[in-house]
Simulated assay, not measured.
Amino acid sequence: MTSSAAQRINYKLIQPGLPQAANAVPQGRIFNIQRYSLNDGQGIRTVVFFKGCPHTCPWCANPESMSGKIHRVRREAKCLHCQPCLNDAQECPSGAMELIGQNITLDALLQQILKDEVFYRTSGGGVTLSGGEVLMQAAFATQLAQRLQALGINTAIETAGDAPLASLMALAEHCDQVLFDLKIMDADTAKRLLNIDQPRVLVNFAALAQRGVQLIPRLPLIPGYTLSRENMEQVLAFLAPFELPEIHLLPFHQYGEAKYALLGREYALHNMAPPSEQEIAPIQAMAQQAGYRVVIGG
């Protein structure tokens, strides 16, 4: 899915979940493989986006990732209005019918990833597992990270850390880097607005830090939600004992807005402007004064 075309999409769920057969080959469910990324870790990276997320962040730039289900969509601008419509993405003559999400085996996904191996080797890059929330498919992601580690490919995950600690630690053990999003620090507000178990998030972060994992905290800067001195003070107070060298600040943007319209969903932050440099500067200064190297945009 791209956010550039103003094309209407009819949105329909078509599959309830991954196959459950006892002897089935393990599969993951992804919705995108983004190549040649210069964000989400060091060097040139391939980002694998896992489908499904338990959270309800109103600023989410990937609304197609929220549901773990595969969706069939129709792009009105491409539609030839065939009679009768086959409603089949593979058979559609114009490409108007698409599926958001696919089930993929570990070997098939590795085959796709390794097409870019030369770029990892020459740039110091690698693979980032993102989402959605990768921990919703922790077992499959852990198998993938193990295989990448065995191949000597730098592997990172992006996570909000809101999952059982055992799942997080098993996956992080095979990762070179964990990009860990801290959002609303107040537990009651985080639960009410984002459906995040903030106490569990903080316990999990501390466990990773104590294990010595290369851990980079990140804070999305969302006006009215996370972009405040009070929230930043709480972030810095929590992080202080871990003596981490770096923090990423991720300013709000509207890049995902068009996806909500395409999916027929209301976008709660439609009228919100991205924060200005003047609004970001005090938060950045707070982090720098606390001794962090600050990266804007991750």
Rank of each mutant, 00 (worst) to 15 (best):
12 K>H: 11
19 P>R: 10
24 A>G: 12
26 P>F: 09
30 I>M: 04
32 N>D: 15
41 G>F: 05
43 G>I: 11
46 T>M: 13
47 V>Q: 06
51 K>D: 01
51 K>T: 01
59 W>V: 00
67 S>P: 12
69 K>E: 15
69 K>M: 14
71 H>K: 09
73 V>A: 05
75 R>Q: 15
77 A>N: 13
85 C>P: 00
87 N>W: 09
89 A>W: 09
89 A>D: 12
89 A>V: 07
90 Q>V: 08
92 C>N: 08
100 I>W: 04
100 I>Q: 00
103 N>T: 06
105 T>L: 11
106 L>F: 07
111 Q>S: 14
115 K>E: 13
119 F>N: 07
125 G>Y: 03
127 V>P: 00
132 G>A: 04
135 L>V: 07
143 Q>I: 00
148 L>S: 12
149 Q>C: 03
150 A>Q: 13
156 A>H: 01
167 S>P: 07
171 L>Q: 04
181 D>M: 07
183 K>N: 02
183 K>A: 02
190 A>Y: 08
190 A>F: 07
194 L>R: 02
197 D>E: 13
209 A>F: 11
212 G>Q: 04
221 L>Y: 04
222 I>R: 04
223 P>F: 06
228 S>N: 02
233 E>L: 08
233 E>P: 01
234 Q>P: 09
236 L>P: 01
238 F>E: 03
260 Y>Q: 02
260 Y>W: 02
266 E>Y: 03
272 M>A: 10
274 P>R: 07
277 E>L: 14
281 A>K: 12
286 M>S: 05
286 M>R: 07
290 A>Y: 04
294 V>Y: 10
